[in-house]
Design a protein around this nucleic acid. Structure first.
Lengths: 218, 218
DNA sequence: ACTATTGGAGAGCTATACTATCCATGTCAA
DNA sequence: TTGACATGGATAGTATAGCTCTCCAATAGT
């Protein structure tokens, strides 16, 4: 297919496809002549993945490019992707008082030790957790009461996540599942958590007359 | 205190404080003369909150302004904040095929009915969950296996979240806890989940020689 | 042969979150 | 009291991200 059909199938404007090609988010089509290229269904799939990582996962273009590069490697290492490539998807801008941050790091190390978690020496994830704990401190809120419960929940979820990854037959599929599961999983979990909070809140603070159980897309 | 001291205490540059004042993220200081104002500790706290919502929560300025407006209301309704104001913090850009989205909405309604969740008629949260489910579909992945487990986790987390909110003594404190807990909680949960995934992955795919249990901030 | 489309390259656009510059007015140490 | 420096307020400029537009010669399809 040519670019117009690709655009139509993936629901992405032609100029945007050209932009993604320039940015290396989409491999070039097979050139049949100096200014004609052919695209196939893998391009459609790749475009859909890019849009989903952008719109739902809110990842920056540069991060998506790095992820896709990992995904395209001949024999990808699933553990390496989960441990190294995906940390980039949870990054927070640092904004904390250094002293608060150091204390938070110690709290994180304690947590990891207590749980016996086996993590790579890479500080990416630890950094992210410490930043959030520090953020709770900065606004004068104690995260301590939540930390253990969240870690419990994270452990249980991670078991299912890895099961989800393992379910894919080949290595390529596993990496794909890891990326999709990690990025979309965050959004899914966040949205479901908000829903469950609303329900808990309704139970706790009383049910209002605008409460119901189902509604359509509009 | 004057603006220079406020800037120093909160770690925010003076021009940025002036910008936040213009944008309504920070209430004006008490004017002692046409071009002199006095600020207090509440301004420091508010600035820190803004930075944390920006840097860790990644919320846009406009969303932060709306949240803070709710927070400043004389007698804020905690349930109303949880149900109406916070949905804005989980929004996803829509990018899905309408047919896929309609099916996803049905799946969401089934989930809500099965769980007996009591939700407001407001479609915000449902919309978000449906968008993510649709996104899984778009990339050719079946979210079904994860949905129930995630909903379980969300329920358990929400109980602790509401406990966290209820722990605050006054209504103002509850709303503050709800906002901080909802926004930072997402980031904390995401970061812990990635950590737990790395651990599960290490268990599943074998431990590497670069694995250890603790590391410092650098 | 002729009209529309293509790949490729560059410039332009929009939104967000600042950052810099002015200036008339104030503060405060000497 | 005087003079360097800070302040509030307004306006304009900057950086980055993610597109979108315009142009061109070469080609596809009829």
């Amino acid at each position: 297919m040519r670019i117009a059909e690709l655009s139509q199938k993936a629901g992405v404007p032609v100029p945007t496809i050209k932009y993604y090609l320039r940015e290396g988010l989409l491999p070039a089509g097979e050139l049949t002549s100096p200014n004609q290229a052919r695209y196939d269904d893998r391009h459609v799939q790749r475009l859909r993945l890019v849009r989903v990582l952008l719109d739902v996962g809110r990842l920056p273009i540069a991060t998506i490019r790095d992820l896709l590069t990992k995904l395209d490697e001949p024999d990808p290492d699933v553990h390496e992707v989960l441990g190294r490539a995906l940390p980039a998807t949870t990054g927070v801008r640092e904004s904390s008082d250094p002293a608060v941050l150091v204390a938070a790091h110690e709290r994180v190390n304690t947590l990891i030790a207590q749980r016996g978690w086996l993590l790579s020496g890479d500080a990416g994830t630890r950094q992210a957790v410490a930043e959030v704990i520090a953020a709770f401190q900065q606004v004068g809120t104690d995260a301590e009461g939540l930390l253990e419960h969240y870690a419990d929940a994270a452990e249980r979820i991670a078991v299912h996540d890895l099961g989800f990854v393992a379910r894919a037959s080949d290595n390529e599929g596993k990496v794909h599942a890891a990326v999709v599961g990690a990025v979309l999983g965050n959004s899914l979990l966040a949205a479901l958590r908000r829903m469950a909070q609303e329900h808990e809140s309704a139970k706790m603070f009383g049910i209002r007359d605008d409460t119901c159980q189902a509604a359509g897309p509009d």
